[in-house]
Design a protein around this nucleic acid. Structure first.
Lengths: 129, 129
DNA sequence: CCGCATCCGGAGAGATACTG
DNA sequence: CAGTATCTCTCCGGATGCGG
């Protein structure tokens, strides 16, 4: 069946979507898009709140997927620079629209959450001490 | 410090980004955007490969965040319809640009992975039987 | 001193089986 | 048919070790 090929593609597309839409990947792309080339520790500072392990892991994946280049300088304190590839930059534009949406609408989400909390009193037995 | 407010906002924005860029959320938004209103099982069929639990959980979150409406019909076999809110629809446009990017560029990602695999022979000892 | 790999413990994703 | 409870297993973060 041809639909096997189709579902194969769909699975692949979804898998890549899952990687590309990863939390740290989105942040890293956003940062590298406006900072250009950065070395590991600088990038870590910009990201904030990420463990070296996750950062390394994510960058590895991104390198594997052709989103970033990884340049290693064989110097005494090791130095590794990361930078978006053209592919990564093109993704950056799509990612940007997501960030813009969140920036623009996050207050609505907050309000929705508050409204939802009101009509769904979860745990706290209110008043009457 | 005012930067406390700033970092507070950043954390919030990132948290919402994390929710909104969730794998299942992206798929659900994409489907509801083009199918309109769907009941639970229909939606489950369209998504494909998702457990009821994950679907329920994700839809709950989306309802909480004001992205979908959840209408329950008090009938004998329970019936629940899900539909994007205006907020969800506006997100749908941003999400669409992500899907378009993946559709357009996933073959480049595949190629990048193959190229990466070649220069990084991980485990498999090649040839020589 | 910088970047990376590994081991371990806890938290959360996820599928299966059951309930109204 | 929609949702919940239980169990499993992966993933993430911190500490450690190492090589340059």
């Amino acid at each position: 069946m041809e639909s096997d090929i189709q579902s194969e593609k769909v699975a692949l597309v979804r898998e890549i979507m899952g990687r590309v839409a990863d939390k740290w990947t989105l942040i890293i792309i956003d940062i590298l898009a406006e900072e250009g080339e950065l070395r590991f520790t600088r990038l870590r500072e910009h990201v904030g709140g990420v463990s070296q392990k996750m950062l390394t892991q994510t960058l590895r994946q991104m390198e594997r997927d052709g989103l970033v280049t990884r340049r290693v300088y064989p110097v005494v304190p090791p130095r590794v620079d990361y930078k978006l590839t053209p592919l990564g930059e093109s993704l950056g534009e799509a990612v940007c629209s997501m960030w813009l949406w969140v920036e623009k609408n996050f207050e609505d989400v907050i309000r929705a959450r508050q409204a939802f909390a009101l009509q769904s009193p979860p745990v706290p037995g209110p008043s009457i001490p």
